[in-house]
Every structure is written in structure tokens, then in C-alpha cells.
Write a protein that binds this DNA or RNA. Structure first.
Length: 646
RNA sequence: GGGCCCGUGGCCCAGCCAGGAUAGGGUGCCGGCCUUCUAAGCCGGUGGUCCCGGGUUCAAAUCCCGGCGGGCCCGCCA
């Protein structure tokens, strides 16, 4: 990371303070490690305690005892940056010299301008982020929304660090699920979309209907040979399936009946039919190519439209069927057979990655948790067809080789932790050590929707489109209440930012309970609150209409909210760097909420433009400019939209 | 059965990895503030056995051990 210290005022401040404390301790004959002091310096819980605090017992016992001697010395030595040092209950509380703080901040903001806080890497990396990659059988649901927001954040973080980033979507257009959809679609004679409905939504219903019809016939068959007790249980299941089917029928009248009629008329074993179809699709049966392409194309275009509403686009869309036909999967299988880890697991060809995982240093290097049990990775079925993870293995190598990536992210749900670990181990086992080390599973927990058990197979899901629609409607009505009409574009920006904000505000490892009413409400602690804060700051600056004279910023009025704000703005580069490198968007959200919570009350109580004293007015303007810049740059990182008016 | 993750006011979340001051926000509820840079705002009030029990420590929401509760994974599914 380029340490352009000018652009990181807090690092400079910290360095100056640490030096003062360390030298003072030295003069008293107490050896303290400056690095320890630096890492322990913290923000006091209350502004009265000063700007920085050092918990003394953590450094050394003697420091506690001799703090009274130490404090004046440190105050003296650090005169450039330190105004006052006090000893209170085991702490050394440090108040910074206002002039120093203001000076550092003014310098940073004037020199770094709109890139304030953004630290670029010395040597840019090539980074590939694969995300969303939802199966092309239904519209994006809310879980994919979380994936989309997080994946785009990862990509943005690297872009802002100066890396060259490629976004990819892996279209899983093979497998049983797709076959169910193709089956239903063909039986219905390639139906057109009813008005007011998107293709992906229609086909999602067809998929669910086909799957449910097959499930029902499976159940009926089982009931024929079931005991009475079992039959009762099955009957209950059947009722629930039928209820699901009826619910789907409500949304697309006629379609379900037609499907049932078609299936019955042919007196087909739907399940067997679908299996055969799946095999034919994987083999690339030319008579199915057009139908297959049409089905996948319609769903993908719907998904693409949803992503566009979210403001997300991909550099490449990779199709699984093309991967299989390119022969890469076969090549990989051949290579696996020659591996020392090749084995047979219950008769099926496999890689014994568990054996590799016995070595603790390998687990360490590949980020596989210490005691996770690793079963062998089965590569193919007895009939020779490949399994998903095998194809993913081939795809991973393709990702590395095509892009020349130094780092590849798979943004994938946490429930896939084991297959993702197997993937890295398998790469290593096959001799791709660098790739194995450079493959990152960026995991996230699932999204639950309040009061709904989700299931794609039953078309029980909340879609990203619905959520966006609801948010757009809400944004409109709130604006109308205030007597303002907002443009479609503004409403969409409010909506998609609100959605992204919710997805990024909670740590990815926590299950997110999505409450539509709450996300739709635009209050404090939402994206809209931040957009509003930014609009206020921008409004002041545009009314001022001139360049801020950073060289004539006064330090006298730096107290209360103004001081808090200055410190927060000074700390931004540090926060930004941490969030962008550790990929913890929730930290940025917390920071922004705090910033807005300081800015807004200050805004209310302390007029900027009406300030008669010039140097104080410049100080206030600098704080407004700092707030604006910090929010704008955070938005670039999080993928939130700025608005001129809210 | 084994593994991974989570448990903080009615509800949601931050803090935990790198232990430190009276545990922070939001939301909800009650009351107040628009002639002054955007009231999607601001101010005040209300509300907590940091899941439980031990241990380590001058100091534990944070570290360790043992429980309890919830989620996910352990397939020739993806």
C-alpha cells in the first residue's frame, strides 16, 4: 500500500503522539515499545477524555505508577501535536493541539481532494470476482441480492485499491434443474410472457410447476405401496404440494392445468423423461440446442435486467455447457487419473483430498479449518457423467488461465464451505498450488425473509425485482408526502441503495433477516439517511460556490461537534483501508452512520454560510467538504448512489 | 454422532480476532422543535442478568473450558 502519509492525517497524528510518549518514557528510564503504544492508542469513550487514550496497564505496570511524571514530559516533547496529557484512572488521556489537527486535515483535504482516503496499491493485482451465478431457472431472489451486493463490493474494493478487476457470472445451464425447466417449457409450447411479467419470473413459475408435478407423481407412486401410517404422512405432504401448485396456478392461470394435461396425456414418467433430457443436454444433442438456448437466454436476459436495476454489470458470462463442450472437463479428469491422490470412492473415480488435508500446513495455507472432516471428492458418476464440483474445478482453472488473475474470489453461500474447501485442496493435489492459495471463498450467510419459508422448487421466494418495486413505490410516496415529485431514476437510486445498504450493513457471516417493511422505511440507519446527509453537505458547498481556502482555516473554534467531526474525517483513510483490504463492508456502514449522526445535529445547530468570522467559516466549510468527500468515497466503495436532492 | 457459524434492551445491529473508563447505535413507544444552509432532519424521555456456569487476569461482552438454544454442512444433488 502506498503510504502517502499526507492523505492519512490520522496516521501522522498517531505517529507524532507515539513518538512523544515513547521518548518521554525513555527519559524516565522506562523502555516501551513504540509499536505497542501505537496499537494500543484508542479512541476514548467520551470526548471529555480527550482525543486519544492509552490504557497504561497494557503497556507496563510502571507506567501506571509513574504516569504523573510521564504526562508533563510527553506534553513537552510532543508539543507540536499534543496540547494536554492527563492521567485518569489508569489511562493517559491526550488532547491534540487544535492547530495541528486542523492543519493536518486541511493539508490532506486540499492535496488529496476527491481521492481523500483512497489508498492505491504500489503494484496492482489482477483480480477476478465470480459472483451471483444464480441458476438460470428462476428470477434472482433476495439471497442472490445479498450475493450481488457483496460481490460488487469486493470488486469495487479492489478497483479502488488500483487493481484490475474482472466480474464474471457462471451460468449453470446444465443439470437436472435446468432439465425440469426445459421439459415444462417444451410441454407448454414455448409460452409467451403475459403482460406485466418478466421472462425470468414466468420461467421460474414453469420450473416450479414442472418440478412440483413430478414430485406429486413420485409421491403418488410411493403411496401405492405404502402402509397405512406411511400413507397418512404422504397424504399430508401431497396436500402441501397441491397447495403449492394451486398457488402457482393463481399467478399464471391456465399454465399449470395445461402442464398437468400434457403430462397425463403422454402418460409419461416425468422423472425419467427429465433425466434423459438432462443427459441429452449435457451431451449437446443438436436437436435440443435451439430450445435449450431459448430457455436459458430468456431467463438470463431477465436476470441481467434485474442486475441492471441494481447497477451491476458483468464483464463475462461463462456458460457451463460451453465449458463441458470445450473439453476442459475431460482434460481435467485425465489429469486427475494420473494424480497420486486419485482413488475410487465406492466405485466412483475420486480425489482423496482428505489425505492431503491431513497435513496441517496445507490446511493453514488453503484456509481450511483445522478439524473439518474432508471426504474424498467424487469426480464422476458411475455412468461417466461429471459432477458439479468437477466442472467447477475445470472452470476455476479456466478463470485463472484466461484472466491471468493473481486472486480469484468465489462469492458463494457459507453452506458451500466444504465443497469450496475440497475445490482448493483438489487444485493443490493436481499441482495447481498457486491457484489453490489464491482462490478465496468469500462466504456469506443466507437471507431469511420474515414470515416466509423459501424454496425455489416451490416458487416460494422473494425476488429482487419485487423488493426493488416495493422500495421504489415507497420512495415515491414519501416524496409525494413532502410535496416533491421524484424522477424514475432518483426513485430507483434510492431503492437500490436501500437494498444494497441492508445487505452490506450486517456482517456476511450472520444470517440476515430481511424485513421488507423495515428496509422500505427510510429512516436513520438507512442508505437514504446517508444520501440525505450527503445532499445537505453538497447543498451548502454549491451555495457557497467558491473554492475553500484551506490555507485560511482557523483552529480556534474546534470544539464540540466540530471537533468530533474533524477527528472522524481524519480517521477515514484508516477505516477505508481496513474495509477495502479485510472486506468488511459492515465496518464502513457503522462508520458512516456515526459520521452522519455527528454531522446532522451539527448542521442543525451551527450555520455555516451565515458565519461572520472568516477563519471559522473556513473551518466549517472544510468540515462540510470533508464530510461530503468521505461519504462520496464510501459510496464508491459500497456501491451506493449519491443524489443531488433527496 | 462429527464439524463450522451465531446468541448483546420488545425487534435489528456494532463492539469480540489484537481484554481496559459508566456496553454504543438504530428501530419501537412517549413528549417537544420548521420566518434562518433540505424536517427522509433535530432535541428530550423510555428500555440491558452482553444465553448459562466455571476458569485465567489488577481488569472479561471480548480469552480458555463445560453446558444450553438456533442455523448450516457431513450425497455418484447443485
Amino acid at each position: 500500500m502506498r503510504s502517502s502519509s499526507v492523505c492519512d492525517p490520522y496516521a501522522e497524528i498517531r505517529e507524532c503522539v507515539v513518538k512523544a510518549v515513547a521518548r518521554a518514557a525513555e527519559e524516565l528510564g522506562l523502555g516501551v515499545d513504540p509499536r505497542t503504544v501505537g496499537s494500543l492508542l484508542q479512541e476514548p469513550p467520551k470526548p471529555e477524555f480527550g482525543d486519544l487514550a492509552l490504557p497504561l496497564p497494557r503497556v507496563s505496570r510502571q507506567l501506571v505508577e509513574r504516569c504523573a511524571e510521564l504526562a508533563p514530559l510527553a506534553e513537552d516533547i510532543g508539543g507540536e501535536c499534543v496540547e494536554r496529557v492527563e492521567c485518569v484512572g489508569g489511562y493517559m488521556n491526550i488532547r491534540l493541539r487544535s492547530g495541528y489537527l486542523v492543519g493536518r486535515l486541511a493539508e490532506a483535504l486540499s492535496k488529496c481532494g476527491s481521492s481523500y482516503g483512497i489508498a492505491r496499491r504500489d503494484k496492482p493485482l489482477r483480480v477476478l470476482v465470480e459472483f451471483v451465478s444464480a441458476n438460470p431457472i428462476h428470477p434472482l431472489h433476495i439471497g442472490s441480492g445479498r450475493n450481488a451486493a457483496l460481490g460488487d463490493f469486493v470488486a469495487r474494493a479492489h478497483e479502488l485499491l488500483g487493481d484490475v478487476v474482472e466480474r464474471r457470472y457462471y451460468v449453470n445451464d446444465l443439470g437436472l434443474q435446468v432439465a425440469y425447466l426445459v421439459y415444462g417449457y417444451a410441454k407448454l409450447g414455448r409460452p409467451k410472457c403475459p403482460p406485466q411479467m418478466k421472462d425470468d419470473h414466468l420461467l421460474g413459475l414453469i420450473y416450479a410447476a414442472a418440478y412440483t408435478v413430478a414430485d406429486i407423481s413420485r409421491l403418488k407412486k410411493r403411496m401405492e405401496s405404502a402402509s397405512e401410517a406411511e400413507a397418512r404422512e404422504l397424504r399430508r405432504e401431497l396436500d402441501s404440494l397441491v397447495a403449492d401448485l394451486l398457488r402457482i396456478r393463481e399467478r399464471v392461470p391456465g399454465l399449470v392445468d395445461e402442464l398437468l394435461r400434457a403430462a397425463e396425456a403422454a402418460s409419461e414418467d416425468v422423472e425419467r423423461e427429465v433425466r434423459e433430457l438432462s443427459r441429452a443436454l449435457e451431451l449437446g444433442d443438436p436437436s435440443l440446442a435451439e430450445l435449450h438456448g431459448e430457455v436459458i437466454g430468456r431467463v438470463v436476459s431477465g436476470i441481467r435486467a434485474t442486475l441492471e436495476r441494481l447497477g451491476i454489470s458483468f464483464d463475462r458470462w461463462d456458460y457451463e455447457s460451453e465449458l463441458v463442450r470445450s473439453g476442459l472437463v475431460d482434460e481435467l479428469l485425465a489429469r486427475a487419473r494420473k494424480s497420486e491422490f486419485f482413488t475410487y470412492h465406492k466405485g466412483a473415480p475420486a480425489l482423496d483430498v482428505g489425505r492431503l488435508a491431513e497435513r496441517p500446513e496445507i490446511r493453514e495455507a488453503l484456509a481450511v479449518s483445522k478439524s473439518m472432516e474432508i471426504p474424498p471428492l467424487v469426480l464422476a458418476r458411475s455412468d461417466g457423467t461429471t459432477l458439479y464440483t468437477t466442472r467447477d474445478l475445470a472452470y476455476t482453472l479456466k478463470k485463472f488461465s484466461e484472466s491471468g488473475a493473481d486472486l480469484v474470489y468465489n462469492v458463494v453461500a457459507v453452506e458451500q464451505t466444504l465443497p469450496q474447501a475440497q475445490l482448493r485442496l483438489a487444485l493443490y493435489a493436481l499441482g495447481y498450488e498457486r491457484e489453490a492459495r489464491s482462490l478465496v471463498h468469500y462466504a456469506y450467510e443466507m437471507v431469511n425473509v420474515k414470515g416466509l419459508a423459501m424454496s425455489g422448487r416451490r416458487a416460494r421466494y422473494v425476488t429482487v425485482d419485487e423488493v426493488l418495486d416495493a422500495l421504489v413505490a415507497r420512495a415515491r410516496s414519501l416524496a409525494r408526502e413532502r410535496g416533491v415529485e421524484i424522477s424514475d431514476e432518483a426513485a430507483l437510486k434510492i431503492a437500490r441503495s436501500a437494498l444494497r445498504y441492508v445487505m452490506l450493513s450486517v456482517s456476511p457471516r450472520k444470517t440476515l433477516v430481511f424485513d421488507l417493511d423495515q428496509a422500505v422505511g427510510v429512516k436513520a440507519g438507512t442508505a437514504t439517511y446517508l444520501q440525505y446527509t450527503l445532499a445537505r453537505a453538497r447543498s451548502i458547498l454549491s451555495k457557497y460556490g467558491r473554492e475553500i481556502e484551506f490555507s485560511r482555516v482557523g483552529a480556534d473554534g474546534l470544539s464540540g461537534k466540530r471537533r468530533e467531526l474533524a477527528l472522524l474525517i481524519a480517521r477515514f483513510p484508516e477505516v477505508f483501508r481496513r474495509v477495502a483490504t479485510e472486506l468488511t463492508p459492515e465496518d464502513m456502514v457503522s462508520y458512516l452512520n456515526r459520521l452522519a449522526e455527528v454531522f446532522n445535529p451539527w448542521y442543525d445547530s451551527d450555520p455555516v454560510l451565515a458565519e461572520p468570522d472568516e477563519s471559522l467559516r473556513n473551518l466549517k466549510l472544510m468540515l462540510v467538504y470533508g464530510t461530503k468527500t468521505v461519504i462520496e468515497n464510501s459510496f464508491r466503495l459500497l456501491g451506493l448512489d449519491a443524489l443531488e436532492r433527496v
